[in-house]
């Protein structure tokens, strides 16, 4: 193909230069902690032993994510975007490299309950009401009943599920269930939200609606969000930063800044030239990643 790969590579270097301002490991003082990256990954790699040889799920990944960012991970299946999210969540163990979440190892961050994880499926427990599902993490953390009720009420209001507290998950639509699972992740007020294709199973109209709501939520709560998706419009619409990944081996091939689209975005923004320009660059990146094995 044409020298697109080179251009991409150049952009990557630029982006990494731009991002590497904050150094990890300087968070000894609480004041400095807020300026250190929320997620700091250097040279991360993860290999599975499959029957027909090793699978390089992640290869030499470097990434820094600042507090308050909305970062999307996009790429074809098998590019390691879900694996990367699961490594950050301490649900997978890497073979090499360094990773720090909020200045500590992923397992310490998990035990500290630093993040809320939202899965591809709502994963609500069918024997619990919506309210009880939202209160599940609070129960596990030993928070008293009165405060549990107060927090679940507030979170369900935030995701527009007021009045559905006493319903069971299977009585709600897929979109409502996924909103309930977002409320559950928000209930213990984690600094970090990890979302693994949360709207992948929903239809486009519901997905658009939830994307808008998610943006408002992000703006309101000021949380750092890591969002895995395979939809280019979704990634561009939501993100302040887009990480484009490529498979075999799973690696980052482009990091695109989209913060100039602003924090408050309407669905109409998807027709603007700025939006289309970023979407184009994402598509180019995905194509460059694919061109290696064609």
């Amino acid at each position: 193909m044409k020298p697109k790969g080179e251009t991409v590579l150049k952009r990557v270097t630029e982006d990494f230069m731009g991002d590497s301002g904050a150094q990890p490991g300087l968070s000894a003082e609480p004041g400095l902690a807020s300026r250190a990256p929320v997620v700091d990954i250097q040279g991360l790699s993860l290999t599975y032993e499959a029957a027909d040889g090793p699978v390089y799920a992640l290869s030499n990944v470097d990434l820094q994510i600042e507090e308050g960012e909305f970062v999307s991970f996009i790429g074809p299946s098998g590019c390691g975007k879900t694996t990367l999210l699961r490594v950050i969540a301490d649900l997978e163990q890497p073979n090499g490299g360094h990773i720090h979440v909020n200045g500590v190892s992923p397992s310490e961050a998990r035990v500290r309950r630093d993040y809320g994880f939202i899965f591809q499926a709502p994963a609500l427990y069918p024997w619990r009401t919506i309210q009880k599902n939202v209160e599940l993490p609070l129960e596990i953390f030993g928070i008293p009943k009165a405060e549990r009720n107060e927090r679940s009420r507030r979170q369900l209001e935030l995701v527009n599920l007021k009045g559905f507290e006493k319903k069971f998950p299977w009585q709600l639509s897929g979109g409502m269930q996924q909103r309930a699972s977002i409320a559950r992740a928000l209930s213990f007020d984690p600094k970090l939200l990890l979302m693994d294709e949360p709207f992948g199973a929903l239809d486009e109209i519901v997905r658009d609606h939830l994307n808008e709501q998610l943006l408002k939520l992000w703006d309101k709560t000021r949380k750092t969000v890591l969002f895995v998706t395979h939809s280019i419009p979704e990634a561009v619409f939501l993100s302040s930063k887009i990480v484009v990944m490529s498979p075999r081996p799973g690696r980052i091939i482009d990091v695109i800044d989209a913060s100039h689209l602003g924090r408050e975005r309407k669905l109409e923004i998807r027709e603007t030239p700025e939006f289309l320009k970023i979407a184009h660059r994402v598509r180019e990146g995905l194509r460059a990643g694919h061109s290696y094995d064609d």
């Binding site: 301490d90 649900l91 809320g116 899965f119 591809q120 994963a123 427990y125 024997w127 596990i140």
Partner: peptide, 24 residues
Amino acid sequence: RLERDLMHSYAAGYWTTLVKLRLP
């Protein structure tokens, strides 16, 4: 799998996971 991962992400121990998830 997801339900177990969820419990793991809450750093829930063996008995908590047993009582709140696996037994039901």
